[in-house]
């Protein structure tokens, strides 16, 4: 996934030279340098790379679904309940449908949902957060009360109700999940904006007559993005789980293949066809784990201190005079 690379290309270009730049985003000086350093650190981050590989696996499966398993995933291709073999890598289900084909087409559905939801939720969340934080005053109060309104109701059950009321088409599902997924991002980005709004370089930009639009796009947003990206990635993995749970309960779009549906369909055949449950569930786990690992890694490489720094600091402390005495028994394992 090209998130860090694309960010290097366009973000942070307008932040003033090193002397004026705050340390909010990291210990390094100029912003483009900061992003480049972040990418470099990401590429050295084992957990991050693992996450990237797992996520890519799912993305490639989704993109190549038509190539890997051409045709309608709902059609019958062989005898029912065949165990995994060369012809059917993940076996067939109770209606003789190829489980492998269903899983890769399910990857496509999950991808569409995650991308759609993340796009809408990011736009809403960032807009609300940045406007509230930058404008302040009654606009801030109003937007934050609205955000709290959306957070007052448990998301899973609200989504169940809305899907039942409004119908379970894929487009509906994306809107519903998007409209319930933006509040965290809004709150986090508002907090980030608040922390940079009154910095000297923003004040400097204002004093030379920069418009609000320019200040927000060039000076504020680049500082919000690192944290926002972590939140967006975390939201993405929750969306996969939520969509899978909905289709597990029979509230997904019945006309597209989805992992949750496959797992729920496997329930009655657990004793005779383990493969019907294991492979679709594994797909969900891989996708969620991949995104979670990436967002953890993003958090490490974009935050002020990377995990490597922490480890180094910890080592230094352990070498300190206090630790030089004999180790207690418990710790000596």
């Amino acid at each position: 996934m090209s998130i860090p690379a694309s960010v290097t290309a366009d973000a942070g270009a307008g932040v003033p030279p090193s002397g004026l730049v705050p340390t909010a985003g990291g210990p390094e000086g100029r912003a483009p340098h900061r992003w480049r350093a972040a990418v470099r650190r990401f590429l050295r981050h084992p957990a991050g790379l693992t996450g990237l590989a797992l996520t890519l696996l799912v993305v490639v499966a989704g993109l190549l679904a038509e190539v890997l398993s051409p045709g309608d995933p709902f059609r019958t291709v062989g005898d029912p309940l065949l165990s995994p073999s060369g012809a059917h890598l993940m076996g067939t289900d109770n209606l003789g449908r190829d489980v492998f084909g269903a899983v890769v087409h399910g990857a496509r559905t999950s991808m569409i949902v995650v991308l759609g939801v993340s796009a809408i939720a990011s736009v809403i969340g960032l807009s609300v957060g940045v406007v509230a934080g930058y404008r302040g005053g009654w606009i801030d109060d109003l937007l934050m009360r609205i955000t709290e309104l959306f957070q007052s109701v448990p998301r899973f059950f609200l989504v169940l109700l809305i899907v039942a009321l409004f119908g379970a088409g894929l487009d509906n599902l994306i809107y519903v999940l998007a409209f319930t997924s933006w509040p965290t991002l809004a709150r986090v980005s508002r907090a980030e904006v608040l922390s940079v709004r009154d910095r000297d370089y923003v004040e400097a930009a204002r004093s030379i007559g920069a418009t609000d639009r320019r200040i927000v796009l060039r000076h504020v947003l680049p500082n919000v993005l690192p944290t926002a990206m972590v939140v967006i990635a975390l939201t993405g993995s929750r969306i996969i789980l939520l969509e899978a749970s909905l289709s597990f309960l029979g509230l997904g779009d019945p006309s597209v293949m989805s992992w949750g549906y496959l797992v729920s369909n496997a329930q009655r055949f657990l004793r005779v066809a383990w493969w019907m449950s294991v492979f679709p569930g594994l797909a969900i786990a891989v996708a969620v784990l991949g995104i979670n690992l990436m967002s953890d890694a993003l958090n490490d490489v974009l935050a002020a201190y990377s995990k490597a720094d922490l480890r180094r600091r910890h080592k230094r402390r352990r070498r300190g005079w206090l630790r030089r005495r004999p180790r207690p028994v418990l710790a000596g394992a």
């Binding site: 949750g260 797992v263 657990l270 569930g281 786990a285 953890d296």
Partner: peptide
């Protein structure tokens, strides 16, 4: 991390497959 990524309904089925059965 892995435990956090597993959907509960699938973990339930896995528990049946591996432990209960």
């Amino acid at each position: 991390l892995i435990g956090y990524a597993l959907p509960s309904f699938w973990l339930a089925q896995l528990a049946m497959l591996t432990i209960a059965f």
